[in-house]
Design a binder for these strands. Structure first.
Length: 564
RNA sequence: CGGGGUGUAGCGCAGCCCGGUUAGCGCGCUUCGUUCGGGACGAAGAGGUCGGGGGUUCGAAUCCCCCCACCCCGACCA
């Protein structure tokens, strides 16, 4: 591709609206342009990279027996009503105004629509059907460029099995395929075993990439691979060891002491000796939650343990419930349900609020002084805490969900009447799985992981072009002639080459653009070296340069591209 | 949807607080000349509903009201 005749509008400056690295680089490197919030056009370079990703996905999906479909984005609303997902998706589902259609945010319904009445014998299964297509979701807040948008490319596949064992097998196939895909895309990722979400089902895994632009917070152990959403993550922490002797409970005047830190400073004690109190309203009833020191209540864990809905009590309610304001609340004298974190199970000689403003109590023995305390894991894990599975430590960070594999079960087949007859002539619902991958997210994550201050550093597997050919001064005939020859020969050999043949661009401009676009290999043709029949090759990743005789350039390029 | 921020030439910004000729600057763009291995130099140009609407005023990019768009934080996320 000749740059002089192509649309490669690189940007020298950082666009005002872009914040995350991948977004900035995708705009600057002429891969995408925004049309509206969360709506992007792929420019030619970006689309080439997208197609390479899709091709890798396709190969790996085909390798597990997947069959590619092309389904409509425009769906009759009534199909979505069969599964009650018009309501379930709510505002996230785009509705067409002048006809009863919706824009598909995913394709369980359409795939099940094709499966029902057609896959009607156990002999017809298993099947794996997939597609790579545009999905539409009316995200309340699109962000981070292409990472969360309203229209995006997704590979989604669906498995149809006659048994739960069959589903397990289809799921395992997808797990393997996904690892192969992300490995081939040179992504550093990890796998989080997620609990079944609102989609219903028996098991799922999320493929995640560490990134500040991520929307999930996860705890991850590098050494054993333990990974969990922080909402459910556990860690190895010391519990408060029970002192041999329990002191008597005594009152301490603590004027203006509100926080655990202030209490520790005021009494010159360690935070591990304190029990922090939080009051939640659970289905209308007050619950006192006790945590050690500054440990944070994990509301997800609390919700899961209690069931129903919880919310923190309002300040006005606190006085009514406990007789004190936040900062002076404690378990002694509290009437009502008390739940404490495992870390302070049966601990003694604790400090906590006195349920009287400006007073705290010391010498609290939860075993002796407080009846009916329920103990649960309620902590939010912190970076640096011990991994629950091995001897190393956890890191807590935000991450992007790249892909999700999911054992759906019979939710959709039952709702839509997708039944089959088994060997005994008995009717059963088809057992399904669903499996998604965000194509743009692969691209964005790759760029997040492979860039430097000059731009993108493509690996050849995803690079829009293999080689970036730079003719430094197109006004010199020798250079032009040499460049044209090299270019044509590369093209003829099937080396995908982008050729900077701009007559009016300075050398510096061409170098900067080449680094920004980030093709793996640069071939530089300059006057001095050409006089000695030499060209220069630069490896983008390492920055290494070396001279190659003109006659040998094609072999050298092939050699580097196949070996690297 | 709540909180915060921004909107002035293709891009990045100044001007606004304290209203006053033809609204500036850098990059980019056009033409000419010089330069030609890390975003060159000189000269001459083109390019603007100052996000939109309404109001105050002799006069509004500037002050007031309403709306819109985009970004960030939060909520939400099948």
């Amino acid at each position: 591709m000749r740059i002089s005749k192509s649309f490669v509008p690189t940007l020298k400056e950082v666009p005002n609206d872009a914040v995350v690295t991948s977004h900035i680089l995708m705009l600057r490197a002429a891969m995408i342009r925004m049309v509206s919030a969360g709506i992007y056009s792929f420019l030619p370079l970006g689309y080439k990279a997208a197609k390479k990703i899709c091709e890798i996905i396709r190969q790996e999906m085909d390798a597990i027996g997947g069959q590619e479909f092309h389904l409509p984005a425009l769906n009759p609303k009534e199909i979505w009503e069969e599964t009650n997902r018009v309501e379930a998706f709510g505002d996230t589902l785009f509705h067409i105004k002048n006809r009863e259609y919706v824009l598909a945010p995913t394709h369980e319904e359409i795939m099940t629509f094709h499966a029902r009445n057609v896959l009607n014998s156990y002999k017809d299964m298993p099947q794996i059907w997939y597609q790579i297509q545009t999905k539409f979701r009316n995200e309340a807040r699109p962000r981070s460029g292409v990472i969360r948008s309203r229209q995006f490319l997704m590979k989604d596949s669906y498995s149809f099995d006659t048994s739960w064992e069959g589903l397990d097998h289809s799921y395992e196939l997808h797990d393997k395929a996904y690892r192969a895909i992300f490995d081939r895309c040179k992504l550093k990722y990890f796998v989080v075993g997620a609990s079944s979400g609102a989609m219903g089902g028996t098991g799922s895994e999320e493929f995640m990439v560490k990134s500040d632009a991520g929307e999930d917070t996860v705890a991850h152990c590098e050494s054993c691979g333990y990974a969990a959403n922080v909402e459910v993550a556990e860690s190895r922490v010391n519990s408060k060891i029970r002192d041999e002797k329990s002191k008597d409970v005594y009152e301490i005047h603590t004027p203006n002491v509100k926080s655990i830190d202030e209490l520790c400073e005021f009494l010159n004690i360690d935070e591990s000796e304190c029990a922090k109190s939080r009051v939640y309203i659970h289905n209308g009833e007050a619950v006192l939650v006790l945590m050690q020191g500054n440990d944070e209540v994990n509301e997800s864990k609390l919700t899961k343990a209690l069931g129903g809905n919880i919310r923190p009590a309002h300040p006005e309610e606190l006085m009514e419930i406990t007789g004190a304001d936040a900062g002076s609340i404690g378990p002694i004298g509290y009437k009502g349900r008390i739940i404490a974190d495992n870390r302070i199970k049966d601990a003694n000689n604790l400090y906590s609020g006195a349920n009287k403003n400006d007073y705290h109590l010391g010498g609290i023995d939860l075993f002796r002084d407080v009846n009916n305390v329920e103990y649960l894991d309620l902590r939010t894990v912190l970076s640096g805490e011990g991994c629950p599975r091995c001897e190393n430590n956890l890191q807590v960070f935000s991450a992007i969900e790249l892909g999700h594999i999911f054992k759906l079960g019979t939710k959709y087949s039952e709702a839509m009447g997708a039944m089959f007859l088994d060997e005994n002539g008995k009717e059963n619902p088809i057992i399904m799985g669903s499996y998604g991958i965000g194509v743009e997210r692969i691209m964005a994550c790759f760029i997040e992981q492979h860039n430097d201050e000059n731009g993108i550093i493509w690996d050849k597997v995803l690079a829009p072009f293999d080689v970036h050919l730079i003719a430094l001064n197109m006004k010199k005939q020798q250079i032009t002639e040499a460049a044209e020859e090299v270019y044509n020969k590369l093209i003829n050999q099937g080396v995908d080459t982008i050729y900077d043949d701009r007559v009016d661009a300075q050398a510096g401009v061409k170098f900067k653009d080449a680094d920004l676009l980030g093709m793996p290999l640069q071939i530089i043709i300059g006057e001095k070296k050409l006089k000695e029949d030499l060209l220069e090759v630069k490896i983008r990743k390492t920055g290494k340069r070396f001279d190659v005789p003109v006659d040998e350039i094609h072999n050298k390029v092939k050699e580097i591209l196949t070996n690297d």
